[in-house]
Simulated assay, not measured.
Amino acid sequence: MPDTPDQRLLLVHAHPDDETINNGATMARYVAEGRGVTLVTCTAGEMGEVLVPELEHLAYERDGGLGDQRLEEITEAMSILGVTDHRFLGGFGRFHDSGMAWHPDGHAIAGEFVPDNAFWHADLTVASDELVRVIREVRPQVLVTYDQFGGYGHPDHIQAHRVATYAADLAAVPSYRLDLGEPWEIAKVYWTAMSEGRMREALRAIRESGDTETFAGMEPDGDLPPFVTPDDLITTEVAADDLVDLKMRALKAYRTQIRSDDKAFGGGESGHAFWGSEYYRLARGTAAPGPDGRETDLFAGL
């Protein structure tokens, strides 16, 4: 393809907003550097929580229509970040948001009601083939998705991990489904992570400021939820502090999902926002760490 960047990143996420929370600064940095960024979102987030009173009628359990709203939101967010290649897995609406419930232990699980066409119920090979088609078209050197628990247990996050992992394998098989494109092997696969050290540092600053509401239930020296990753498991830190404002602007595009007064996503000016550095675990490929023992670029060594 003409004007195809030499280095290409593919991200696989479950719902609109997941990509910006986890990887917005990374995406903005690579776009600014002229690298290719392709985002695949697996569902439209039709069963997400609506946090804006004037849009509550869009909730799945009321009038519905939240998926169309979140399509508008992710379109705006990607425009802010500069990402021009965004796709829904199999096309918009192919796989439905599965919903979730909270386990007493504090992690997400599948809810009592899961729609028949939910992503959680999707045949793994069928869903993976849709991603194989994208992988073989885009031919990324790097893939980013969740860990095996989806960060915090959401069934769609777990399924996104499974689909991304299986599709990466299938896409490389020389004899597999050549109707989906020429085989391609992804050199490096990463799982998203949130640094335990960075989180404790931020929590300490938040609590010392007198704020007891942000990240309620989490304390600097207490137990942390499963989406927080021990620092010794983190292989890569991508810093884009100069682009954090873009990330925060993109987050604000998700009007139904993130309250405008939410201090946790308050932006670089809040004094405890730590969103300019994003963390990863190398799940496949060869690490190329810098002097401090961590990679600073997902494409390091390629």
Rank of each mutant, 00 (worst) to 15 (best):
L89T: 03
G111A: 15
G93W: 05
T75W: 05
A77L: 03
V83H: 02
F88C: 04
T84P: 00
G93I: 02
V114Y: 12
P104G: 07
A118N: 02
V114Q: 09
H103N: 15
G82C: 04
R94K: 13
L124S: 06
W120C: 00
G93N: 08
L124W: 11
F92D: 09
A110D: 11
A118P: 02
L81W: 06
E76L: 07
A110S: 15
F119N: 00
A108G: 06
A122L: 04
T84W: 08
D85E: 14
H121M: 02
G82Q: 08
H107A: 06
A122C: 08
L89S: 03
M100F: 15
G106L: 07
H121D: 08
G91V: 02
E76H: 13
G111V: 09
A108I: 02
F119E: 01
R87H: 15
W120L: 05
G90I: 01
T84N: 08
I80C: 01
A77G: 07
L89C: 06
F95Q: 04
H103I: 08
E73C: 06
G93S: 06
I109N: 11
W120I: 00
P104L: 10
R87F: 10
D123A: 04
L124C: 02
E73V: 10
L89G: 03
A77W: 00
V114I: 14
H96N: 08
G111F: 07
G99S: 12
R87P: 00
L89V: 05
A110E: 14
S79R: 14
D123K: 04
G99C: 09
A118Q: 04
M78Q: 13
G99F: 05
W120H: 12
D116A: 13
F113V: 12
H103W: 15
L81D: 01
H86A: 06
E76C: 03
R87C: 03
E73P: 03
G91W: 12
A101L: 06
D97K: 06
H96P: 00
S98P: 06
I74N: 01
I80F: 05
W120R: 01
V83Q: 01
G106Q: 12
L124I: 11
S79N: 12
F95G: 01
D116V: 03
G90C: 03
V83F: 08
G99R: 02
F92W: 12
F95E: 01
L89K: 05
